[in-house]
């Protein structure tokens, strides 16, 4: 994997993941995240693994995965594409939205074992080099977030929404984006961003 593509890598060059992984952090807040990582890697070493060949952001991968493993965990833990966020992990929040064969889906309810031969696009695959995707730029221009945790899912969902057919009104944007929850409630700016992002994508 090319570390330059790591969404966790900020402009400072310090990746949040690298920071945690260095073991320098023993803060209580970090503990649940670390435990999740450990569980996932243990499960993947069990018996009965299945082979999956999947293309992610244009790169082909052949992997042995636990049949219980979700696409979400596989993206984050195996491919280190941590831009896709793990929110509820129950298909209720939309933070894990990615595109599979061009359609927006929830990676937390998609078993990695079912993605054999498929093409997955994550938030890391949207930009064209240094050039942000118009929808990414629109979210920045409109400050369409507060904490940012739901943002990758919001953007992936919005790009697919435009591809499905343009939204004609703000109410239609709200309805068609209702599968993406923003707990900071940045919805007014998200609607602005999606409206402008849609315009820029045409």
């Amino acid at each position: 994997m090319n570390p330059d593509n790591d969404a966790g890598q900020g402009r400072s060059g310090v990746s949040r993941r690298g920071f945690l992984g260095a073991g320098a952090v023993a803060a209580a807040a970090a503990a649940p995240l670390m435990a999740t990582v450990a569980d996932a890697s243990t499960a993947a070493e069990g018996e009965g693994l299945v082979t999956v060949r999947v293309t992610v952001n244009g790169d082909r991968h052949a992997m042995r995965v636990d049949p219980r493993g979700t696409l979400l965990d596989t993206l984050r833990e195996k491919l280190e594409l941590t831009g896709t966020k793990k929110g509820c992990d129950r298909g209720q929040c939309g933070a894990c939205t990615v595109h599979v064969d061009g359609r927006r889906v929830l990676s937390c309810l998609t078993l990695a074992a079912t993605t054999n031969g498929r093409e997955v696009t994550t938030i890391e695959g949207l930009a064209d080099g240094e050039q942000l995707h118009p929808m990414q730029q629109a979210f920045i221009d409109h400050d369409g977030f507060q904490c940012g945790f739901c943002t990758p899912g919001q953007i992936m969902s919005a790009v697919a929404m435009v591809d499905e057919g343009p939204a004609r009104t703000d109410d239609e944007i709200r309805e068609r984006m209702s599968g993406n929850i923003c707990r900071c409630s940045a919805y007014p700016f998200i609607v602005d961003a999606v409206r402008d992002g849609q315009e820029a994508m045409r």
């Binding site: 697919a160 984006m177 209702s178 993406n180």
Partner: peptide, 9 residues
């Protein structure tokens, strides 16, 4: 029903 993502699945 549900959301656009769930309806796609």
């Amino acid at each position: 029903s549900a959301s656009a993502q769930l309806r796609n699945m």
